[in-house]
């Protein structure tokens, strides 16, 4: 029951958010977060958003991982830099 994926917020009515989770739209509670906007990604647990994904931190993490990879080995011929943007 602690397994969760980041869900994209599609719309907000009061404390209720409609999110897309693995291709399915569901309603969740946003009672535990402030400042959530449509388009944000949130970590959802038992029907509640617990945390908002910080896009800048996500980019920084992936940039550091890919930099370490490039330092360790030359990039493979058809590699895609970043990956995250393409995965949007």
């Amino acid at each position: 029951m602690c397994l969760a994926l980041p869900a994209k917020v599609l719309g907000i009515t009061g404390e209720t958010g409609t999110v897309e989770l693995g291709g399915v739209e569901i309603d969740i509670s946003l009672a535990l977060l402030d400042d959530v906007q449509p388009g944000d990604y949130v970590v959802v647990h038992v029907g509640f958003a617990l945390s908002k994904i910080d896009e800048a931190e996500a980019r920084a993490t992936l940039a550091a991982l890919h930099a370490a990879r490039q330092a360790a080995a030359p990039p493979p011929p058809q590699h895609r830099n970043g990956g995250e943007e393409a995965a949007g």
């Binding site: 980041p6 994209k8 990604y41 994904i53 996500a58 992936l62 990956g83 995965a87 949007g88």
Partner: peptide, 10 residues
């Protein structure tokens, strides 16, 4: 899937 696929990169 955003915030998922990039963390499964082989």
């Amino acid at each position: 899937m955003k915030h998922v696929d990039a963390y499964r990169d082989p």
